[in-house]
Nucleic acid binder design. Sequence first.
RNA 1: GGGCCGUUAGCUCAAUUGGCAGAGCAACUGACUCUUAAUCAGUAGGUUGAAGGUUCGAUUCCUUCACGGCCCA
Length: 620
Amino acid sequence: MSKSGLIEQRNIRLSKIEELRKLGINPYPAKSNRADYSNAIVNDYESYKGKKVVAAGRLMSLRKHGSVTFADIQDQTGKIQLAIGKKILKPFDAAISNLGYSELKFLDVGDFIETSGEVSKTKTGEISILSERITLLTKSLRPLPDKWGKLKDRELILRKRYLDATLNPENKKEFENIAKILFGIRSFLKEKGFLEFLTPVLQPQYGGGTAKPFITHLNSLNRDFYLSISHELYLKRLITAGFDKVFTIGRYFRNEGIDKSHHPEFSMIETMTAYENYEYNMDLIEDMFRYIAEQVYGKTEFKVKGHTIDFKQPWKRISMTDAVTEVTGINFDDCKSVEEANNHLKALKIEETCETIGLALAKAFEEKAEETLISPTLVFGHPIDISPLAKPMDSSPNKAERFEIFIAGMECGDNWSEQNDPVELLATWKANYKPEDREVGEFHPLDYDFIEVMEYGMPPTTGIGPGLERMAMIFNERENIDDVIFFPIMKSHLSKANKKIFGAQEDKADKSLDILITFDEFQEFVSNCLKDSAQDIIIKPYMRFWESKNIFKASGSAEIIGLFKNRSVKLSGYSSKAEKPFDKAEEVLKFKDYIQNLIVSFLQKNFNKTEINLSETFLP
RNA sequence: GGGCCGUUAGCUCAAUUGGCAGAGCAACUGACUCUUAAUCAGUAGGUUGAAGGUUCGAUUCCUUCACGGCCCA
């Protein structure tokens, strides 16, 4: 007998499966004969009245009253009630997998079932199916969380979205709408004459942006590859190949922070259009948002961060310089020198010195203007310094033919007339090539293959890249990116109950034998590497040996106390396994060595300005 | 990275100053021919996220860790 409620309930359901199998019922058949959806029946009762239907879905509630039972099943479209009368329901028949009235006891809330019967209303007026047949489609082993309360634990909602979606149809609807956004974008771009391409996620050289990439290894080529941080350079190759309007709905991977509006894995709709410049895209993006608002959501007004945004209105278009001037009164275009620009930054309480006027303008915009752009705004005329892939404007060569989309203070897409002068591009890239930026994610790799493409010649081209998640956040009126990503990234977790149920091994010590190094021994052992001034630091070593399933194991750690106020530091991780008993003396030596290295690397990491010398005597 | 908060039964939540770990739903047994959060009677379900500490005694206080949330940079 299990002590856990979950395990007990699961066992009961397993035994129901056992009994059903004995009766000749397959609890997991491959196919259903479902022909009707619940909302069609409920919304159009007059046409369905008296007709036979076959519906299927998840059993969401079961109310037994002796010889009559009421049940609710939920399918993709909604819920419908089944009225199951002892006299109407046909008797048990394994040949057609029909459950009789007394076999209803094998059903649980959460099971998937199919039913056929006449549509009618009950005495209380509820539209129902008078079930003549009931077939089990899938036996569920675990109880659904509370059947009318919704899931509240945020961690559970994010980890088990399928449960949240089952219990919370409004939330499910939001994800349905995100799927429809994708259809909307595709049909919009199709109407405009675009072709969709799939571009590589695994790339030998990453490019098209500045971000920290994920690195992976491709065994068959024995090379490290990068997960795409952008798909832009591939779309440009397609333009070079002679396709005039292309797009991809791509997956983007950036090994950077996770917060309310950033996720390491996200999606963008990236387009490239030949023979046009960035002004074409200003219209395209505006039209695309309006199209989705009208086609998918059937409205143009959305509430974002407390502001009402109307996509019907023409979007504001403003240069970056003017956007900064509007907020701060400072016009960076009037700057005669970098010093002057930096003085402006100081006046704006931005504690950063920039190398060029352009960088200072960008900084001021980012710090002061961005968050004020609530209604949809297209900001153009970025400094060329921050736009290495964009063409300079004819009228002011230090500005790029580029614009960004801001909605509710969020950047929702970046767009420009693509630089297709290979000599210029190579020069810009080389000037920006700073391998030391790789760590901070502001590194432009040199992609000679791409320069070669440009040398063959790419016609004048422009591209846009609105982020799908940000779009979804706006249209679904959500402020957290996790609310628009069905499977947000999380650390894996195996619950205690699941460890038991699945028989997953728990690496647990059976018994602890002895501690082989004494406190004094260890302090003597490390005294040579700590200065007198660190006398108050106590290092407590722990080591133990034990036996588990005929494997001998050792593990050890050292705790440093007194280094920080109210905190101790634990250096851990030593472990060792063998099939026969250890030579303990040798193991202790290994442990000492390990701990010594740990301490040295710990000190190096945390006191990197201090030189750490390992004296000979420190070694055991 | 910094700060604050959370983790108790399958789910949602209690537990008074540190003093017997409880309820509703779900589950199980039984009654019931129109319910819809069905009802009624009964039963069972817990290593209070993990480890350590203080204490006669810890869900409660302290430390560390794990997982998560919110805010800030």
